[in-house]
Design a protein around this nucleic acid. Structure first.
Lengths: 263, 263
DNA sequence: CTCTGGCATTGATCTTGATCAAGGCGGTCG
DNA sequence: CGACCGCCTTGATCAAGATCAATGCCAGAG
């Protein structure tokens, strides 16, 4: 690959191995040539950022493309004192690639929730890489598409369902992930789940009470599915809302009808 | 060219040429080689679709990539009888490319608002083209990024502001688009604006009354800015919410190792 | 050990915006 | 012309959820 000697703080150049491995193991980056990932990795700054840190604020112009390798990050819409959780990002993912790619200011604030491991690539370097490597471009496109769809699902959830239904469906989804009958742990603090579901903690708390009547009891951080059938009946889940939205890798196919037309 | 007895008036005599021209004139497709666009055009079905038609429903699996060339299309989240307007798509744009690319079911229903001119490309053909042509891939990525950011702005608008503020900012934005002092026409029926702003027509109507007190009078379909300063003071617009989100073309830069492009 | 601070619960009250209902205005089509 | 229909407005009421406030609970610090 190209080595166009960009001046980059070589501070942590050495330990690039671990994160690169993480990237290489990431499904939606699977089709990206090793060389490209290494090229990015070479220019990247690695960081381990403690919970609570603000990675960037809304209105800032992106200086880096941020790969989230480990931990988790909240994306918040901010007005004055108010903060609204828009998305909770989990690894491996890119933080708001849309802003980086389109050279526009971030629309959201990013704050570390659980200590995060990041790989920061200078924005220009990243854009160049996307422009230079078709496979990377496809991967980022797939990633961006998944983020879009997650966003749409989120909106549908909040605007089409009542608070109680959201809570019910959320819990139901949790329980069906695990074995039947087994208690399941809430993956987050309740206040964060409440944010994610677009309500206050108080409303969430009250909803838990109501939902318990329909077979979904929450005790502390444990979810007990007392009566799954009743729950399912009361809270019909919808794959177009509740389904996980994984990144679907776009095949860079070397297949037939390769339109290599053009003289 | 496919001539499969198109519905609707004979006005559409000039076949593939017009839509292709439209695409070619579209900024965010500017970097895509003519040959690629023609390749797509050759496989495409053109349609002129009357207002009210449903283009696809949520949960359907995309059969086509849909280029909106003219008119406008509503994207709706549906539950039972309820429909919520999520986005109003204007030309030239792609309808939910995320679903097409990731081979996932549509999350939304698409219905024609103003008679639409469409170019339909078989989903597979489209995916192949994106996988084969780097410039097209970049263009679609830019388009998808813009859609994502529009979505985020929409969410911020609805969740961070009250109904009254949304109406105020919306009107304010309209008036500043045009000359000072001049009355401006509402670009849509009020019921649609209400949907777009995430409220009922009744609430919208009432808000108009309140907003008038602050210098923004609406009479019929005309907006009169009686007191712009008062309005601005009361309804501070925020570029991170109210700003238009145009597609920012990603440069396929002619830099190193990319000798293809430009005869 | 107690003190403190963050989280959770619970109750009382309030506000926003939705809903229901009635009428008005302005078209179009027999 | 008049009947109808879609859109808008206005009023009365309602309900979901937010807000405010008090308390409990638990863990870590001193």
């Amino acid at each position: 690959m190209n080595t166009d000697g960009l001046p980059i703080p070589a501070a942590e150049a050495a330990p690039a191995a671990a994160p690169l491995d993480a990237l290489r193991r990431t499904r939606w980056l699977g089709a990206v040539p090793r060389a490209t990932l290494e090229h990015l990795g070479k220019q990247a700054v690695l960081h381990r950022v403690p919970a609570g840190s603000m990675l960037f604020d809304q209105a800032e112009t992106p200086a880096f493309a941020t790969f989230l390798i480990g931990g988790s990050v909240e994306l918040l819409a901010v007005r004055g004192e108010d903060e609204i959780l828009i998305e909770l990002v989990e690894p491996v993912d890119l933080l708001l690639p849309a802003a980086v790619l389109s050279r526009q200011p971030y629309l959201l604030r990013a704050r570390v929730l659980e200590e995060a491991r990041l790989m920061l690539v200078a924005a220009d370097t990243f854009r160049h890489a996307v422009a230079a490597d078709h496979a990377l471009c496809l991967a980022v496109l797939a990633c961006q598409a998944a983020q879009f769809r997650r966003q749409v699902k989120q909106v549908k959830n909040v605007r089409l369902r009542s608070a109680e239904e959201r809570v019910g469906c959320y819990l139901l989804r949790l329980t069906t992930t695990a074995n039947a009958g087994e208690p399941v742990r809430l993956p987050l603090e309740k206040r964060l789940i409440a944010s994610q579901l677009g309500m206050t903690r108080e409303t969430f708390s009250r909803s838990l009470g109501v939902v318990a009547v329909h077979g979904l009891r929450v005790e502390g951080e444990w979810v007990l599915a007392d009566d799954i059938d009743a729950a399912r009946a009361r809270f019909p889940t919808d794959p177009l809302i509740d389904g996980a939205e994984a990144v679907t890798p776009l095949p860079l196919q070397a297949s037939r009808e390769n339109p290599r037309r053009r003289p």
